[in-house]
Nucleic acid binder design. Structure first.
Length: 308
DNA sequence: AAGACGTGGAT
DNA sequence: TATCCAAGTCT
């Protein structure tokens, strides 16, 4: 165990990316924002949006003081815009229940909107130096290969995986934080899902998956459908709403923007993209009511807009 | 507890 | 061009 810790944290010390939320004086709010943005989203896409968010909202109170729609608009094209809504709700809860300071315990963090077991542990560890069992997709994959000898972790997080991760965690607080960050980084940069760079791996010699001859996955991960789905329509509608500076009447979503007098610029661009999907009226209806139900849109003056 | 939920770069 | 998949959460 000591051997793995030295090798992996040593590798991390010289290879780690210089990410702004890893800056010692980034602050817990910056870490929380980064963790929410990084859910299912690559670092390179988060970077510029995170910078803008922290410049505009340096504290939870700043974000909580603005309409939720502003959070959604400034979320840009990061994807899963409900995360912006939840982050706004989390900021509000932090102001109301925690005096505007991001809480520092796993339990309090877990109670915040949009914060699940991974994010609660990550913020407690990376922002406050606490010893937490952080388990994300990178760490799961490293453990699966290095220790379990399988190509991929199970489809869903298991209790056995949590026990394994807990057993690997160094006792010392600071060492545990480094370990969590290092294993995550190893999974992100070297022990990747596709085409792992085993030649660059600091623990290649100890890898159970390698020793077993790199057996293929025992199951096929089911891919997410996209074309023709409600999600695709929702995404296209949200792209329109983010650009609109006034409520958008429902009929605009149904007709070719050119017929409505829209030039192929400004709001005409996402409007045209939506129309190009050629989705059935009932699907558009389903997508719109879904957005309303989720609080990502609201009706005002007979049109749709981001929540005020 | 399986499925919904965005987006775009890489392969 | 089609598929994969990235620091998950919620219901």
């Amino acid at each position: 165990m000591e051997f793995l810790h030295r090798r992996i944290t040593g590798w991390f010390a010289e290879t780690a990316r210089d990410l702004p939320w890893r800056d010692p004086d980034c602050g817990a709010w910056g870490v929380l924002v980064s963790e929410i943005m990084l859910q299912q989203t690559p670092v390179v896409r988060v970077l510029p949006v995170w910078e803008e968010w922290l410049k505009r909202w340096p504290s939870p109170a700043g974000l909580a003081g603005e309409p939720a729609g502003e959070a959604v608009r400034n979320w840009g094209r990061l994807g899963y815009p409900r995360r912006a809504l939840r982050l706004h709700a989390a900021a509000t809860a932090i102001v109301e229940n925690h005096n505007g300071r991001v809480p520092d315990t796993y339990t309090e963090l877990l109670a915040l909107p949009g914060v699940g077991s991974y994010t609660a542990a990550a913020v407690a560890a990376f922002a406050y130096g606490r010893r937490e069992t952080v388990v994300d997709t990178n760490i799961r994959r490293v453990h699966a290969r290095l220790v379990a000898g399988t190509a991929l972790p199970a489809p869903a997080l298991t209790a056995a995986e949590m026990r394994l991760a807990a057993s690997l965690l160094p006792d010392d607080d600071a060492a545990s934080v480094r370990w969590n960050a290092a294993v995550m980084e190893l999974g992100a940069l070297v022990c990747t899902a596709r085409a792992p760079k085993c030649a660059d791996c600091p623990v290649m010699d100890s890898c159970a998956w390698r020793a077993a001859g790199e057996p293929p996955p025992s199951y096929v991960p089911k891919g997410q459908a996209w074309h023709g789905t409600d999600r695709q329509v929702r995404g296209a509608v949200m792209a329109v709403l983010r650009l609109a500076d006034a409520p958008v009447p429902a009929e605009m979503f149904l007709q070719p923007p050119a017929d409505l007098g829209f030039a192929p610029e400004g709001i005409g661009v996402p409007l045209a993209a939506l129309h190009r999907l050629n989705s059935a009226p009932e699907q558009l209806e389903r997508a719109m009511s879904g957005l309303l139900a989720d609080g990502l849109a609201e009706i005002h003056d007979g049109g749709y807009r981001l929540p005020a």
